[in-house]
């Protein structure tokens, strides 16, 4: 038995020697990856089982998770994160698909104008976008309230109002979400062979049927990718919350990542914050797996 293992071990060593160059080539990336990504992932899981404030570790098992389940503020943030995704993802897909289909047949010059216009918020720093919108939403001097008042409505305290703060942030989130999907959809639309539509026209299908039976099915892999990516990004909403509302009013705009940040870096409860990170990870992984499993059944790559 032992001899067998020894033999196998020798074979592996032999193989590793042959592949020496391969290891050298991946070494810089892989070593940094191990220290600054892989190790922290494992460590995060461990920290979540401790009470930890940078100076002392105290083992408390799954207590952090039990605390979170009963923490109303965290649950509110959890629900808000779901709501951000629930509003942002469908709106992003509908809007970007509509825009892409509309600009696809246009001339290259105007196509690139539109692509640039909708992609601008993606390349601009999230801080910039947030500050501009904060200025637009300003309760007294904001341009939005000026317009609203001029068409005969009362001014609204967009970011301070219980009912308006959340939708106000969804709009900002939406403006940074649709740029990438538009580029993807436009590229995919360009790769659909024209003959498909020609055949369709001979068969006498109308525009709507064309979208329903030719365009939409062929765009499905792209849509699935956009769906997963936008969902993940929505769950990670942080900067717009931190800079615009600080989670308020009354936690109506707080998200998991915002709670994680304040718990870890304002209150130095690193174990509790790690547990939040693990919960966020589980949610994201579960949703992604779910989306791939149930939506990719009829997709052929």
């Amino acid at each position: 038995m032992e001899v067998k293992y020894l033999k196998k071990f020798r074979q592996i060593v032999e193989k590793m020697k042959k592949g020496k160059e391969g290891y050298l080539f991946i070494a810089p990336s892989f070593i940094i990856f191990m220290i600054f990504t892989l190790f922290p992932i494992v460590k995060s899981l461990i920290i979540s089982l401790f009470e930890y404030d940078l100076s002392s570790y105290k083992w408390i098992g799954i207590n952090n998770y039990l605390v979170l389940i009963e923490d109303k503020v965290f649950l509110k943030a959890l629900i808000n994160s779901f709501l951000f995704a629930l509003f942002n993802v469908p709106l992003t897909i509908i809007l970007s698909l509509f825009i892409s289909i509309t600009i696809h047949p246009k001339k290259e010059a105007s196509k690139s104008f539109y692509r640039a216009a909708f992609y601008l918020p993606v390349v601009s720093s999230i801080v910039t976008i947030t500050l501009i919108w904060k200025w637009i939403y300003h309760p007294i001097f904001g341009i939005l309230n000026f317009i609203i008042e001029n068409i005969g409505f009362n001014r609204i305290n967009w970011l301070g109002d219980y009912d308006f703060a959340f939708p106000a942030l969804v709009i900002v989130l939406l403006t940074i979400s649709i740029g990438q999907p538009i580029l993807l959809y436009v590229a995919s639309l360009g790769s659909i062979p024209k003959t498909y539509y020609e055949v369709g026209r001979i068969e006498g299908v109308n525009r709507l049927q064309e979208y329903r039976y030719i365009t939409w099915p062929l765009l499905k892999p792209t849509t699935l990718y956009i769906l997963v990516m936008t969902t993940i990004a929505s769950f990670q909403t942080f900067a717009i919350v931190q800079l615009m509302t600080g989670g308020g009013p009354f936690y109506t705009t707080s998200t998991i990542v915002y709670q994680l940040y304040t718990t870890a870096f304002d209150f130095v409860k690193l174990g509790l914050a790690s547990a939040m990170g693990i919960i966020l990870t589980l949610i994201i992984v579960l949703i992604s797996v779910f989306q791939f499993k149930f939506l990719s059944t009829d997709i052929e790559y």
Partner: peptide, 20 residues
């Protein structure tokens, strides 16, 4: 191993990374 970690949100590694 490398690719699988790409699916995880980066916020999950922030605390241990801060410690490091």
């Amino acid at each position: 191993i490398m690719i699988a970690t790409m699916a995880l949100p980066r916020q999950v590694i922030v605390i241990p990374l801060y410690e490091i």
